[in-house]
Amino acid sequence: MIRRILAGAFIALVLGGPVAAGLFDIEPSAHGTPFANGNEAGFLGTEHLGRSVGAAVLVGGQSLVVTAIIVGSLTTVFGTLLGILGALRPKLGFFIEAVADVTILVPAVILLLLTAVLYPNGGLPLLISVSVAVGTPYAARVVAAATYPVASAGYVQAAQGSGATTVSIIFRDIIPNISAVLRSVWSLRIIEALYVLATASFLGVGRSLGEFAWSAMVRDNASGISLNPWSVLAPAAALAATSIAVVALINGRQKEPKDVPSS
């Protein structure tokens, strides 16, 4: 419980970073000496343009994390529906597995770079669409693997035999029994989206995430790491800490799923 509270507080701080920066009266736009260390220029020093690293880290995480949550949530929803339908309908399941196999072989960042070249003005909608399209088949395959044992259970077959609708079977008989797997898929899809978007921003594709996106800060400040290491270490640590917090907040303490027979 304490771990989840701490993780939730950290995620809340990231999402409310711009507000927190205002409360502490620190602005990333204020210019000073580039790469001044913390002893010379306040909390965490300054970055390559002389702006506050601490303020930039607080401000830069919101867009990146919110976008990752959107991508991870959409991927999980689409992957769950496709995965369960694939388990209930073997022909569709075979197609989903084939698409997932092909998708896994193609790095998501390569597709982001390709689509960014073809559609340079796509912006944030393009990043979200490509990330969801790439992640959904893999999520569907994981969900399908968890659904097969449940789909073959007696109460599911009885529900099918009694004429229950597919929607009813999905939401009443299957999802409650794979909820632990779905939470894990959701957290992993958010983390995967977080790193894909961060990589895109690092490579200059994700400009719509903002100039203070953590990965963009790592790229821009790498040349001054010897002068002010915090200009690189702080955003990198924030990215890693966010990944850990997402897993701790969503998964928590896992419990063994129990069969919920249909009435």
Score class of each variant (00 low, 15 high):
residue 239 L to Q: 08
residue 78 F to Q: 14
residue 221 N to I: 10
residue 138 Y to L: 15
residue 144 A to L: 14
residue 110 I to S: 09
residue 22 G to L: 03
residue 36 A to Y: 01
residue 74 L to V: 13
residue 119 Y to T: 12
residue 218 V to H: 00
residue 137 P to L: 07
residue 85 L to S: 06
residue 169 I to N: 14
residue 31 H to K: 14
residue 118 L to V: 14
residue 195 Y to W: 06
residue 30 A to G: 13
residue 261 P to Q: 02
residue 183 R to S: 05
residue 70 I to W: 01
residue 13 L to V: 14
residue 261 P to W: 01
residue 179 S to C: 06
residue 259 D to Q: 12
residue 30 A to S: 12
residue 88 L to W: 01
residue 239 L to D: 04
residue 1 M to D: 11
residue 45 G to S: 13
residue 210 G to L: 07
residue 219 R to S: 15
residue 259 D to F: 03
residue 236 A to C: 07
residue 123 G to M: 09
residue 76 T to Q: 08
residue 62 Q to W: 03
residue 148 Y to M: 06
residue 114 L to Q: 05
residue 174 I to M: 09
residue 238 A to Q: 04
residue 202 F to E: 13
residue 142 V to W: 07
residue 231 S to F: 07
residue 87 A to H: 01
residue 115 T to I: 09
residue 82 L to I: 11
residue 93 G to I: 06
residue 149 P to I: 00
residue 192 E to C: 01
residue 115 T to M: 13
residue 235 P to F: 04
residue 70 I to M: 05
residue 139 A to L: 06
residue 80 T to W: 01
residue 67 T to Q: 02
residue 54 G to L: 08
residue 127 L to C: 10
residue 97 E to A: 15
residue 215 S to K: 01
residue 44 L to K: 10
residue 256 E to G: 11
residue 139 A to I: 11
residue 15 L to I: 11
residue 60 G to R: 04
residue 78 F to T: 13
residue 262 S to V: 12
residue 31 H to N: 07
residue 164 A to R: 03
residue 187 S to I: 04
residue 118 L to Q: 10
residue 18 P to A: 01
residue 192 E to P: 02
residue 155 Y to P: 10
residue 100 A to S: 15
residue 148 Y to I: 11
residue 64 L to H: 06
residue 218 V to T: 02
residue 177 N to M: 12
residue 82 L to T: 09
residue 50 G to Y: 01
residue 249 L to K: 03
residue 119 Y to M: 13
residue 95 F to G: 12
residue 197 L to F: 00
residue 69 I to E: 05
residue 165 T to E: 07
residue 65 V to C: 11
residue 126 L to N: 05
residue 7 A to Q: 05
residue 33 T to L: 15
residue 176 P to K: 05
residue 161 G to I: 02
residue 78 F to H: 09
residue 148 Y to G: 05
residue 32 G to C: 13
residue 186 W to T: 12
residue 61 G to T: 08
residue 105 L to C: 15
residue 39 N to S: 15
residue 80 T to F: 02
residue 109 V to M: 07
residue 46 T to R: 14
residue 135 G to E: 02
residue 54 G to I: 09
residue 13 L to N: 04
residue 44 L to I: 08
residue 111 L to V: 10
residue 157 Q to W: 00
residue 55 A to Y: 02
residue 168 S to I: 04
residue 219 R to W: 01
residue 117 V to G: 07
residue 125 P to Y: 05
residue 71 V to D: 04
residue 217 M to P: 15
residue 9 A to V: 10
residue 157 Q to F: 01
residue 243 S to I: 02
residue 19 V to G: 04
residue 152 S to Q: 15
residue 207 R to N: 14
residue 35 F to D: 11
residue 259 D to H: 14
residue 92 L to T: 10
residue 191 I to T: 04
residue 222 A to W: 03
residue 258 K to S: 12
residue 183 R to E: 02
residue 210 G to Y: 00
residue 142 V to P: 08
residue 40 E to L: 10
residue 246 V to I: 14
residue 197 L to C: 03
residue 11 I to V: 12
